[in-house]
Design a binder for these strands. Sequence first.
DNA 1: AACGCGGGGTG
DNA 2: CACCCAGCGTT
Length: 344
Amino acid sequence: MTHRATAESRSSRPDSPFPTVTDTDIHRVRQTIITWFEIAARPLPWRDADTSAWAVLVSEIMSQQTPVSRVEPRWREWLQKWPTPADLAQAPTAEVLHSWDRLGYPRRALRLQEAARVIAEELDGRVPRTAQELERLPGIGAYTAAAVASFAHGERTTVLDTNVRRVLIRLFAGRDRPSASPGRAETGWASQFVPETDHEKWNAGIMEFGALVCTARNPRCQSCPLNDICAWQKAGRPASAEKPKTQKWAGTDRQLRGAIMDVLKSAHAETTSDFPDSVALDLFTASTTTIDSDLLDAVGHATSESLTKMRDLTADSDRILRIIDGLVVDGLAAQHEERLSLPQ
DNA sequence: AACGCGGGGTG
DNA sequence: CACCCAGCGTT
């Protein structure tokens, strides 16, 4: 008795990370979000009833850290070119990367093809139904596994993306934004909101609500249907003390790697036929992974010494030498070196 | 838990 | 320019 009371009072303190939520509020939020979703949802193509599980999986991979508005055209082209896992499994990797275009994090494209090969060759071409099975595939973590199980197969899962986390934390913990990454405690806490029926509408709806109403920067609190129970609203919408750390871009390896990708993709577009088996493919692939430090170092410090190193790396490809020379001529390499050698 | 990983849109 | 976006894998 005493123990139980202590635990409850502790978990329901306002500053608790994941406060106790009353059944009344749980039902109110479920009903409100599902009703709102049926009216306000964006007509995203992968939500169509005839979308295959594979197509849903592709949409989720493409949407990782990428706004859905940029995903939609790429998704359409991708599924037209490779409608099934077997199609993507057989595609030249260089073409896969080229079709990824500028969606960012091109390693996702490589892992999507790896996943396609596992599905095509080991799973009889069928996308796994459960989150547990899905999470074994390359490039699929907790979020994507739960999302594909729910949206492609109607499994009851707890989908916890950046939107869901922000909405629930604001509503019930009164904080501006969630922690850097979700833990088991948060996932368990969030699972209580997922209803027994209509769980797919809840999962999609709460995500959509975070994307359209309870947004990160300028939330539409005036038109929010949950305004009256929102703990963050009641607390005066306090801003988080912690500033999120922003990645550098200009002057870093990432900028140079992007430049290399651009040049290699142009080369690929010109000569699709001879590209896949060339050294260019190796570099093209390598430049999307973390094993390219030698390459970047060589280009980034475009001295005669590093060019020698580069020529060793690309000994049998005149094409790549011309690409590297082009980078040097464009001044990208020199610019990069200049920034790297700034005094600490 | 903390990093590194693209690229672009937005305030 | 800083922040943010349907995260994942590694350390």
